[in-house]
């Protein structure tokens, strides 16, 4: 049985210096997202209780648990929409405090279960992306503090759609004109528009038909790895986590029960509850 409060391997004793920018390479053991002894309390009750985990850039951690496990609350704490009652959340070694700067907010992006609810129905996809790109002050060394010119923004928006596998003519269309899977891809493009370092995907395929589930997962995994993001994939569906994750964390009643590399977790789950979860999933005969 995994010690619930054990720190993940390689956790540094002191915070490292923050890398110079998104392109800067992290040290051999540092960088990415670190959740250290994080707790969240509602009405005096700890719904997340001293959870520690780390996600290195370019890797995907799958967080599983049943309803009431605290997994979604932990996600909300990581994106900064819920305050911590204890512990800390660090990005590349620096503390993401209670009040986050706009740069810190941009750095941690959330993709939710229902893409329709998170997209403004009155704006075209192009307008949604353009608003984000216009807000964004370029942080590159060549144009510090500058803004993108309009044509550059249009090109960037088309590039973002291409990244998630949507045609550029989607820019002129409204969210309702897309299927559920396509809307989720748009939500991913929107999250990536602000050049985040952490992507939190909370049940991103749970309301989608199985035929499009795979596409959305492949986009999240491919871009998360390719863009060197620390990706947290939250799912109640263990087969989703199995498909794309490098590590697996299991929560129950606010407590982290197990944190293990995916290969070991799915073959030899360390906690009896992890095993119960894995064994309860109905399998297709002959698969």
């Amino acid at each position: 049985m995994t010690e619930p409060t054990a720190r993940p391997d390689g956790y540094p004793g002191s915070p490292p210096a923050r890398p110079a920018g998104p392109g800067a390479s992290a040290g051999p053991t540092l960088g990415g997202l670190e959740v250290v002894e994080a707790s969240v309390a509602f009405a005096g009750h700890r719904v997340v209780d001293r959870v520690s985990l780390a996600i290195r850039p370019g890797t995907i951690l799958g967080l599983v648990g049943e309803s009431g496990s605290g997994k979604t609350t932990l996600a909300r704490a990581i994106v900064g929409s819920v305050a911590l009652a204890g512990g800390s959340i660090r990005l590349d070694g620096s503390d993401l405090g209670r009040r986050r700067s706009s740069a810190e907010r941009r750095a941690v992006q959330l993709v939710q279960q229902d893409p329709f609810a998170s997209l403004n129905p009155l704006l075209t996809v192009g307008q949604v992306l353009d608003d984000l790109l216009r807000e964004e002050r370029l942080t590159s060394a060549t144009e510090p503090g500058g803004r993108r010119p309009r044509l550059a923004r249009q090109q960037r928006a088309a590039d973002l759609l291409a990244l998630v596998g949507l045609p550029s003519d989607a820019l002129g269309r409204y969210p309702r004109e897309f299927s559920g899977g396509q809307r989720q891809l748009i939500a991913i493009a929107r999250a990536l528009a602000v050049q985040p370092r952490v992507l939190v995907a909370d049940e991103p395929t749970s309301s989608l038909d199985v035929s499009v589930q795979r596409t959305v997962l492949d986009v999240i995994a491919g871009l998360g790895r390719g863009m060197h993001l620390a990706t947290l994939l939250i799912s109640h569906d263990l087969s989703v986590v199995h498909a794309v994750c490098d590590e697996v964390a299991v929560m129950r009643d606010g407590v982290l029960l197990e944190l293990a590399p995916a290969g070991r977790f799915f073959r030899h789950p360390g906690h009896p509850y992890s095993r119960a979860l894995l064994e309860a999933v109905p399998r297709l005969p002959g698969r």
Binding site: S211, V240, P285
Partner: peptide, 26 residues
């Protein structure tokens, strides 16, 4: 139907189901 689907559509549904291994030592 799930092990030898007769239609392409059913096959695509079956193929879209993500596999999940059974843990060892159950």
């Amino acid at each position: 139907v799930v092990t030898s689907p007769a239609s392409d559509y059913t096959r695509s549904l079956v193929d879209a189901v993500l596999p999940l291994p059974v843990p060892a030592g159950g």
